[in-house]
């Protein structure tokens, strides 16, 4: 295998990491019947909180934990609005995104003022279990969070399809009335799903600020949350198919970074837009076959 291809695959795995974490989170929420458009803001908030806590304590892992906690709080707010009060999910999710983006920027100004150069920290180092071995060495030269994100795919699959918690999540996302009749606590299950989802989204943001960039910038998420929403549909709400979607998007993204360098006679923005356009195309192809959870967007009211 030539160096270009190995480098491309390694970069694909890195780019796919935050998408995978965010998408698995969104998957949990949607399988329980809640579309969480708070994802973009939750990732942004996670990136910010992780960066501040990681920088202040000197422990990057503490930063990750703080980002997860921040994500859980966001999930709880979404649950309060969409599960408890039965508010429209589109608007409450977008409202949470606007709130958390505003809150992060407000906090950033309070902590760092208006620096000319964005503040930076020493980011996570990569783990390379194969050292200098050809092919395997550079391929597995990855962040710990990347290994964790990929290991989560079978874990999420097992949780959703092989545990009673997973069965309850799927039940309240398909038919909450029947689930309720069968003794499932619809509200509690949806709360838990949103908590897990929020934690994963927070971790996705922390990966960007604490591993990939080692910095926090205003454009750090740049629509990645919306890409995650698309990947859930593209992956037909299945953790394994979602993995392929994240790899495809990650691959296109990694490829455009390399195409920019090759000096083709096109503005580099063409390549930046490419992953988004490919995602829309993929959604168009999935089209009517998308099997939405039946109770998605429908608040549950117990009469």
């Amino acid at each position: 295998m030539d160096i270009f291809l190995i480098g491309l695959i390694a970069a694909t795995l890195r780019v796919a990491t935050p998408l995978l974490l965010g998408t698995l989170g969104e998957l949990f929420a949607e399988r329980a019947g809640i579309l969480n458009l708070g994802i973009e803001g939750t990732m942004f908030f996670g990136a910010f909180v992780g960066f501040v806590v990681g920088g202040a304590t000197g422990s990057l892992w503490l930063g990750v934990v703080a980002a997860i906690v921040a994500g859980i709080l966001s999930g709880l707010l979404m649950a309060l609005l969409s599960v408890q009060l039965g508010v429209n999910q589109h608007v409450s999710g977008l409202g949470i995104t606007l709130l958390l983006v505003g809150l992060s920027l407000f906090g950033f100004r309070l902590v760092y003022g208006e620096p000319r150069v964005p503040p930076a920290i020493e980011p996570f180092g990569r783990l390379s279990p194969f050292g200098q071995t050809p092919i395997l060495g550079p391929l597995f030269d990855q962040y710990a969070l990347t290994y964790i994100a990929f290991a989560l795919v079978p874990v999420v699959w097992w949780l959703l399809y092989r545990t009673s918690f997973g069965l309850q999540i799927r039940a309240v996302g398909e038919n909450p009335e029947a689930a309720d009749a069968a003794g499932v606590n619809v509200f509690l299950t949806r709360y838990l799903a949103l908590v897990v989802a929020g934690g994963l989204m927070g971790a996705a943001g922390a990966f960007l600020s604490l591993a990939q960039l080692g910095a926090f910038t205003y454009g750090i998420i740049a629509g990645r949350g919306w890409v995650c929403i698309a990947l859930v549909i593209f992956g037909n709400w299945d953790p394994v198919r979602v993995l392929w979607g994240a790899l495809l998007f990650g691959g296109v993204f990694a490829l455009q970074l390399r195409l920019q360098i090759t000096g083709l006679q096109l503005p580099y923005e063409t390549f930046l837009a490419l992953p988004y356009l490919v995602t829309i195309l993929a959604l168009a192809i999935a089209g009517r076959n998308a099997a939405y959870p039946a109770a998605l967007l429908k608040p549950y009211k117990r009469e």
Partner: peptide, 26 residues
């Protein structure tokens, strides 16, 4: 895409918001 192929408009409109910013930048 919404009326012909039932593609969720929330996602596509959000993604196109990102795309047009690239066009403006270009």
């Amino acid at each position: 895409l919404k009326v012909k192929l039932a593609v969720d408009e929330v996602v596509t409109t959000l993604l196109l918001n990102s795309v047009i910013l690239f066009i403006v930048s270009a």
